[in-house]
C-alpha cells in the first residue's frame, strides 16, 4: 500500500475544492445566528452564576470582616 503523501494530495484541485468547502462550512457554522445566540446565552448564564457566587462569598465574609474592623485587625 502506497504511503500517505499529503503534498501530492494537497496539490490536487479536489483538495483545494475540499479546503474551500470545509472553510465555508466552518465560517457558516460559527456565524449561524442560532449558534451565536446559544453561545452568548451560555456565556451569560455562566457569568451570572459566577457573579452570584462571588457576591455570596463576599457576603459570607462580611460578619468576619465587621468583627475584624471593630477590633482594628482588618488593615
Amino acid at each position: 500500500m502506497a504511503p500517505f503523501d499529503f503534498l501530492s494530495i494537497a496539490a490536487t484541485p479536489m483538495f483545494s475544492a475540499w479546503q474551500r468547502a470545509a472553510a465555508e462550512m466552518m465560517t457558516a457554522a460559527a456565524r449561524d445566528p442560532r449558534l451565536m445566540k446559544l453561545s452568548a446565552g451560555m456565556m451569560r448564564s455562566q457569568l451570572l452564576w459566577g457573579r452570584a457566587f462571588n457576591n455570596a462569598w463576599q457576603a459570607s465574609w462580611a460578619p468576619i470582616d465587621a468583627l475584624a474592623d471593630r477590633d482594628g485587625s482588618n488593615v
Binding site: 503534498l7 479546503q19 470545509a22 466552518m26 460559527a30
Partner: peptide, 14 residues
C-alpha cells in the same frame, strides 16, 4: 475569520 486557523495550517504544510 473562523476558518483562518484551518487555512493557515494547510498553507504551512503545503
Amino acid at each position: 475569520n473562523p476558518a483562518d486557523a484551518f487555512n493557515k495550517l494547510i498553507s504551512l504544510m503545503r
